[in-house]
Amino acid sequence: MIYLRLFISFCIIGVLAFGGGYAALPLIQEQCIEINQWLSMSEFSDLLTISQITPGPIAINSATFVGMKVAGIPGAIVASLGFMFPPFIIVTLLFLVFKKYGHLTFIQDIINGLKPAVVALVAVAALGVLTETLWDGAEVTVASIDMFSAVLALAAFIIIRKWKTNIITTILACGVLGVLWEFVSAFLV
């Protein structure tokens, strides 16, 4: 039965996906391309492209995409639930442990070590998105910087730091400017 197989495959991905979305990619590849032949390699790279431009964690995007392709909307739901089920149980256990023992200095010490690591990982994510923004897959050189994106990102950064503007509004405004710029440059060329 296809729903059960989708559920189980994504459960396995969910259990093993330590370290966020990009850690899940090789697991998704293994389950969906090699073991089950639900996707071809080129569909997998399409999936990555879609995940980058749509909201949400990449693993849930993948589960939805694969589920849709294999078994329609019920498939998408089952696969997403499969992916979220094991982490939900684990997080529940962690919460209970934390509630009971969280006040212990030992646990607090571990968390104090984890917090700066999270800052570092957010910094890595920031640099990753910035690289995508400035070069968009092209070779990383000074000459190949996308000047429009660079100026837009810098302007947005200054505005957020200075006036603490609403995040969603800021991102949407940048999107609108991107479309306008495309419009203007189509006329200029």
């Binding site: 995508e132 923004t133 994106s149 990102a153 810098l154 991107g178």
Partner: peptide, 10 residues
């Protein structure tokens, strides 16, 4: 692409 520039700033 524009939104991505905003995201990196955020």
């Amino acid at each position: 692409r524009g939104m991505r520039a905003g995201v990196s700033a955020v």
